[in-house]
Design a protein around this nucleic acid. Structure first.
Lengths: 337, 337
DNA sequence: ATGAAAGCGCTAACAA
DNA sequence: TTGTTAGCGCTTTCAT
């Protein structure tokens, strides 16, 4: 690999001058500039970003840590992030914790060692003390999707409570009174908030909660599939008329379970979901859902990052909390009774 | 951030000793070791991998460049890669070119600047000369999915030709004679090989090629959707009885088109695909496909990498070509006529 | 077994 | 406008 020194020698200038023409941050005579540019091209020189990072304390890398790399929701967020940071020269390191606290901590450590400029974290733990440690060490953590109790840091989230409240209210308005819920992993804020929205909607409409209709799918498709199947089998004599899935993956799991049990949506059971499934165009019936605008979440997180770097230069600072709106999309999976 | 120097001072040893206990590659007295370990814990010291990388010429980062980050096929490959390299301390930088040659080159440059140890490249160009330049600069490129003419480098691919040949032969065996193809971007090897398999299957069974049944979907779902729709409209009076989609995305596009035109699979038109669609469990009918084993491709690419680092230490070297087998999964989307 | 010191490739303060 | 040089945090050779 050719270094700045070799360029300097061949162009007959100092390394400082070469550095100056590369970065264009200090005046260089036109003559020297030309010569250097030529030599760089000739030698095929490319600056070593490792060396640069070491010197400047800036890596132009951002780590993104999510619980499930295969969920399109997080993929879309990643694309949103990429779309704003990539033009600015940042690269994204994309990591999955598989909902595993230990792995999450390990990844955070690795990213810390790599001195990434930012970490976008969709945490699946509530370990605020460990995360605080990272922040105190100077790590720039931006929370996405999930909030963490007692942790004061920048965050981009959705309004889980209100969106769910509205969705369940709609279901109730359609005449449903026996409504079940497929919860996400209740250790994280989104699952709790969504379930709270669910509960409050029932309560405000004077509908009793039937606990045997509530299962925990841990945000996992297979788990949701199994739990829903079990729950329905147990309640065969008095089935719920509607089900709420707390995310897209679990909605898919539920649909598979219903299909296997020959329960038709929405004729036998209605189903609504927080977040859309894959290829909604091809799956019958079209699901009534909360649309999450995941790309926007990513974009906002990206913009937050770039704002942070500007602010850092101005020695300002403050904590932002951005809430992304989500809307209900009414399709065909809820029966009016 | 605490540095090795601070640890050394506090532990009353030299930085060399601290480095030695961290890396465990040189003898250190038990007493010193203990003291250092303690101090590291006390100070919460973590080695700076940037500095380490600069010194050792090794970043423990691998770049993965694919044409479409949202296609599950590439995501699965990425997961395969991750599963083998992550335990070894490597991180994956995952980038999408959106099938854009210019962007591909830009990304390759960025990864080169970052001095990633390896690049896994699913190229959407055939620019062997440009890629050669990278390789000559010392970049470790491993091709995945797509081969590139005149480029001698390690590669992990599928047997596109034979798999397609078998799949189309099966369709023909079911009695079909008017068979259409939805091709991928013909600039890349996979698209060409798959189409060749398609053509040879027809030829060997004495079936004429009906050119008006062949469209180019450029491996893009929307494009495939549009082209299929157009093609069917044009051939309304003499529809093909079967269609072959060269990848999963385009199969989805075709299904949407067929659905909109009220053509039932397989009653009106049969459909087969190279690679499986999303949530096959929920889409009717279940598609007959070539199953790609994408996670395995990733794993093999990962293993190839680790073998390379071992070989590099032994100063051996050679080029590997790994071909991943794929199998036909017969489901319900081909009518027997 | 340990420490001093050079140096990885770069940037920037300082001097000229 | 330019060159010299220190130093970013680490590893490793060489000397002890």
């Amino acid at each position: 690999m050719v270094t700045i020194k070799q360029v300097a020698e061949k162009a007959d200038v100092s390394t400082a001058t070469v550095s100056r023409v590369i970065n264009g941050n200090y005046p260089v005579s036109e003559k020297a500039r030309k010569k250097v540019v030529e030599t760089i091209k000739e030698l095929g020189y490319r600056p070593n970003s490792i060396a640069r990072s070491l010197k400047c304390n800036k890596t132009y890398m951002v780590g993104m840590v999510v619980p499930d790399i295969s969920n399109n929701y997080f993929m879309d967020i990643a694309r949103g992030v990429e779309s704003v940071i990539s033009p600015l020269g940042y690269s994204l390191i994309f990591c999955s914790t598989d909902e595993n606290t230990e792995k999450e901590l390990k990844l955070l450590n690795a990213l810390n060692d790599k001195r990434v400029d930012f970490v976008l974290l969709a945490s699946s733990t509530q370990q605020s003390d460990k995360l605080k440690k990272f922040i105190n060490q100077g790590m720039n953590i931006i929370l996405i999707d999930t909030s963490i109790k007692d942790l004061e840091t920048d965050i981009v989230v959705e309004d889980n409570f209100n969106a769910t409240y509205k969705l369940i209210s709609y279901v109730i308005d359609q005449g449903h009174r026996r409504i079940g819920a497929i919860n996400g992993f209740m250790g994280v804020s989104t699952a709790k908030e969504r379930y709270n929205g669910f509960l409050h909607a029932l309560e405000d409409h004077d509908i009793p909660l039937e606990e045997s209709y509530v299962v925990n799918g841990y945000y996992d498709r297979k788990k949701a599939y199994e739990e829903v199947k079990l729950m329905l089998q147990k309640n065969m004599s008095n089935l719920p008329t509607a089900l709420f899935a707390a995310n897209n993956d679990m909605a898919e799991g539920a649909m598979i379970a219903l299909k296997e049990m020959n329960l038709k949506i929405p004729d036998d059971i209605s189903l609504v979901s927080f977040g859309d499934i894959n290829i909604p165009e091809l799956v019958e019936p079209r699901l009534t859902i909360i649309s999450q605008n995941s790309v926007l979440i990513g974009k906002k997180a990206g913009e937050l990052m770039v704002r942070k770097v500007v602010e850092a230069e101005c020695r300002e600072n403050g904590i932002s909390k951005i809430s992304i709106p989500s809307e209900i999309i009414i399709r065909d999976s809820v029966k009016s009774i």
